[in-house]
């Protein structure tokens, strides 16, 4: 299987959030109790039960209002820092597809993956276990399209072989492909007509330097039965 990817085109997104609901429906994720915080965006952030959310960005450009909808989710890095730091092998990269997935049963909730993530993506459920986009790897392995891409009415989220998606986006005239080269190539690529900052995407994502070392240390801690404190991980990486 070739490396799989999602091509996200915010210019085609109508902010309907079918992707948020389809994700919850397929993955049996409960709704969260939310309130209106003066914006349509909800839930306010990714959580262990919200793997994919649409950010609603309002801007005034040359006197004209703009409303921009941008998917926030795991980018499925080619060299995923989260996998490298995970001391128990709960976070994994599927070698066939490049999808970064996880095994909740193995996760010990140390949250090192979030600290290591260049996009601050991983979140945790009420039991402290990891929950994030896994590109519906169960569907992909069965030859199906991930729930978000399947349900997207406008083609703002497309799924396919990563290389083909990138070719397609270039053929459609997109000059900026955020994620094509970043961090050695991400599984989730944004096709943009404006610079990444316009969409409030991380302009130049960086992987923390000491990720590999951190991962190995954490493994030792686990092997020794020592607890892992998040503050120390953060300090180590800073």
């Amino acid at each position: 299987m070739a490396r799989k990817g999602l091509l996200i085109t915010p210019d085609l997104c109508i902010g309907c959030r079918a992707c948020q609901v389809a994700c919850k429906s397929w993955n049996d994720l409960p709704a969260e109790k939310t309130k209106n915080n003066g914006t349509h965006e909800n839930p306010p952030d990714l959580t262990g039960y919200t793997y994919n959310k649409i950010r609603f960005i309002e801007k005034v450009v040359n006197g004209e209002v703009r409303w921009i909808f941008v998917s926030q989710r795991c980018r499925h890095c080619g060299e995923p820092a989260c996998v490298q730091v995970c001391p128990v092998g709960a976070m994994q990269k599927d070698l066939d597809t490049g999808i970064v997935f996880y095994d909740k049963n193995v996760c010990i909730g140390c949250q090192a993956c979030r600290s290591a993530c260049p996009f601050d993506v991983p979140r945790y459920d009420k039991q402290g276990k990891i929950g994030k986009c896994h590109m519906c790897i169960d569907r992909v392995k069965a030859g199906l399209v991930p729930a978000c891409a399947k349900t997207c009415p406008t083609g703002a989220i497309r799924f396919g072989d990563r290389d083909e998606l990138i070719e397609k986006a270039k053929a459609e005239g997109f000059k900026i492909l955020h994620g094509e080269k970043e961090l050695g190539g991400l599984g989730v690529v944004f096709a943009l007509s404006q610079p990444p900052s316009y969409y409030e995407l991380v302009e130049n994502p960086q992987k923390p330097e000491k990720v590999v070392a951190l991962g190995e240390m954490l493994k030792i801690l686990v092997a020794k039965g020592l607890p892992i404190e998040n503050s120390i991980i953060k300090e180590f990486l800073s």
């Binding site: 609901v21 429906s25 709704a31 939310t34 909800n42």
Partner: peptide
């Protein structure tokens, strides 16, 4: 988008209420 008419069919649907709760 997230609701429908008086909301009876969407306020009782937790995933939709999550998106537009109030």
């Amino acid at each position: 988008t997230e609701h429908w008419q008086t909301g009876v069919m969407t306020r009782h649907t937790d995933w939709l209420l999550e998106l537009e709760p109030q």
